[in-house]
Design a protein around this nucleic acid. Structure first.
Lengths: 194, 194
DNA sequence: AATGTTTGCAAGTACTTACTTACACACTGC
DNA sequence: GCAGTGTGTAAGTAAGTACTTGCAAACATT
């Protein structure tokens, strides 16, 4: 019970924290080992190399397939309710993986390629799901005659921008994330009224 | 006429290109000098250090005050027309400074502090201008009773997301940036109808 | 008790990096 | 011609980096 984390896990978590903050090139193996409370040589005995350590981190804490599941199981086909659920889930997922996303975005000269691939799958998938959702509504005449793809992109990118912005600066004025999600969904719902 | 670029300028431009691609830590002074077509020692004779070179780059190619000027001079007070102009100008500015923005975002262990400050001013200022714009419309009853600040954030973040997304992947399906701007403005205009 | 695994410590290797120094060459303006 | 400026080449320094090796101590399993 007390032995919560193995040495390998401690190293992975320390690596995620440090690399997300300082970038891949800017973080040394010595730093990672020290933050994990082990010696540097132990890091290499476990993972062999710095790159392999990061790959192990991405494999362990990968994005979930939550969005796909949400679209197939939990939608009500009331636009406002659905967009609210989608927006909240989106931010929940992104927040949980914030550090890994940041690592992939910052890059690095020897940053393993697996990392970049991992990070690029999410938005592509979400855009497809959203576009199909709006298309289905459109066919049934539930919403105004808009372009489903553009609407999907607008919604997705609005939330991506909100997320990225939070990454950089926590000076979000006085608007909390959840009120932003609610009100921005209202705005989209207004625009989609037939 | 033929002597278009001085040695200092060549170094600055090479540094921007390389650091935007590889990050600050991942780019060596030797690389920069080679890309500029000069020797490494010349780099240090001109700028003294790698950090000073980057600061010089930011000072030379700084963001313009175009947005402020636009808001005070070129608005027509027709929402659709104005948002279209704002959106297009936003992307024009961001694109022009894409590499510098990318450098600031990627960071680096010894990346000078001036760089980060420079990059964080833009969005704050734009949000204020947009919020005031919507507030003014609201007071005159031209638009629906929405929250001006939230609407400003939504519009801003949607375009930020579109910009960031372009940074990473050029697989923008078949939608060009300009059609996206047009249609997304339509969407906002629909939502703001009283 | 014996044995294998995991770890820390100390030292070191091979390499890279930002930055320096010394000297020679070309060009410019006077 | 000559001083000044800008540049290239060559060599080097001091520090840091990823990664390795050898050895001994702690520990768990048997």
């Amino acid at each position: 019970m007390k032995q919560a984390e193995s040495t390998g896990d401690k190293l992975i978590l320390a690596a995620i924290d440090l690399i997300a903050e300082q970038g891949y090139d800017g973080t040394t193996t010595k730093e990672i080992a020290a933050a994990a409370g082990v010696s540097e040589v132990t890091l290499f005995r476990h993972f062999g190399s710095k790159q392999a350590l990061l790959v192990a981190a991405f494999e362990r804490y990968h994005y979930a397939g939550e969005m796909t599941k949400l679209f197939s199981e939990r939608l009500t086909w009331d636009v406002r309710t659905d967009l609210l659920l989608i927006g909240r889930t989106y931010h929940a997922i992104m927040n949980r993986n914030r550090k890994l996303i940041d690592i992939a975005h910052k890059g690095g000269s020897r940053l393993p390629g697996e990392v970049r691939k991992h990070a690029s799958q999410h938005p592509v998938q979400l855009k497809k799901l959203l576009t199909n959702y709006f298309s289905a509504h459109l066919e049934q005449g539930n919403i105004a005659p808009i372009d489903p793809e553009i609407t999907a992109m607008s919604f997705m990118w609005m939330n991506l921008g909100a997320f990225s912005s939070n990454l950089v600066e926590s000076s979000n004025s006085n608007v909390t994330l959840d009120t932003f999600i609610e009100r921005s969904v209202d705005l989209f719902a207004r625009a989609l009224v037939p």
